[in-house]
């Protein structure tokens, strides 16, 4: 319930300022347009379109998800949050907000992508939805803890993608593999190992984040 109060505050604040939503929407539209223009009339394979989808998702996450903590630091409200709630509550609230943002953002990207790229055809939709679900959780969990780490740094903009890349790389590689399976129409049992890796990644990142956050949050 306490985390929900923070989530609700962040969501209402976002609806009023529209900082992350506007930045993300513009980024997604520009990136997909650039890909469309650069491909032109060329025929590209389903695998390549699947790969490009996760590239768009990765960079969109980089442009919007750091706001969770950076906006508090820039406005000077970090101290206020430190005074009113335990670190675990703060992390949970911010994670809930980023989860919602990631799911909304990635549903928008995938829908737009399916409409604009003919070669992006998913044969096994259930497998794609499973990987999409756990993949989004992984992106939100990792991005939230990285945002907390970089929020106190002076060069936040540079540090965020630099820190995110090695942490998100195993996740993105697994998601690329699972998207390939989904395009090929492979069964869930064929992709069992990759799904297990994805779930393990989420569990490990979530546990590590809760353990680390206390140290990151305190000066």
């Amino acid at each position: 319930m306490k985390a929900l109060a923070l989530f609700s505050k962040d969501w209402n604040s976002e609806l009023r300022t529209r900082y992350a939503i506007n930045a993300l929407a513009m980024f997604i539209l520009v990136t997909i347009s650039v890909i469309l223009f650069s491909i032109g009339t060329e025929k590209i394979s389903g695998y390549l379109t699947g790969g490009l989808l996760w590239v768009v998702i990765f960079f969109s996450a980089m442009s919007g998800l750091s706001r969770a903590f950076v906006s508090e630091e820039e406005r000077g409200t970090t101290l206020t949050l430190q005074l009113i709630a335990a670190p675990a509550t703060i992390y949970s609230g911010k994670l809930l907000f980023n989860l919602l943002l990631v799911f909304l953002m990635n549903i928008f990207i995938t829908t737009l992508y399916s409409l604009l790229f003919e070669s992006f055809v998913i044969e096994n939709f259930t497998l794609f939805v499973i990987s999409f679900f756990f993949g989004n959780i992984g992106i939100a969990v990792s991005s939230t803890i990285i945002a907390a780490i970089i929020s106190k740094a002076s060069s936040k903009g540079t540090l965020y993608p630099v820190l995110s890349f090695p942490i998100l790389l195993p996740l993105i590689l697994t998601l690329l593999e699972l998207t390939k399976f989904s395009i090929d129409g492979d069964t869930i049992s064929d992709a069992f190992v990759e799904i297990a890796v994805l779930v393990c990644y989420d569990v490990i990142m979530l546990t590590a984040s809760y353990l680390l956050f206390d140290f990151i949050w305190k000066d």
Binding site: M1, K2, A5, L6, S8, K9, N12, S13, R16, T17, R75, G76, T77, L79, T80, L83, I84, A85, T89, G93
Partner: peptide
């Protein structure tokens, strides 16, 4: 150094501070 949330009203700020404390 303490900064409250400028985009919210005084009552909305107080409601948030109360609810996050449970």
């Amino acid at each position: 150094y303490l900064v409250l949330y400028d985009e919210f009203t005084a009552l909305e700020n107080l409601e948030f501070f109360t609810k996050i404390r449970g």
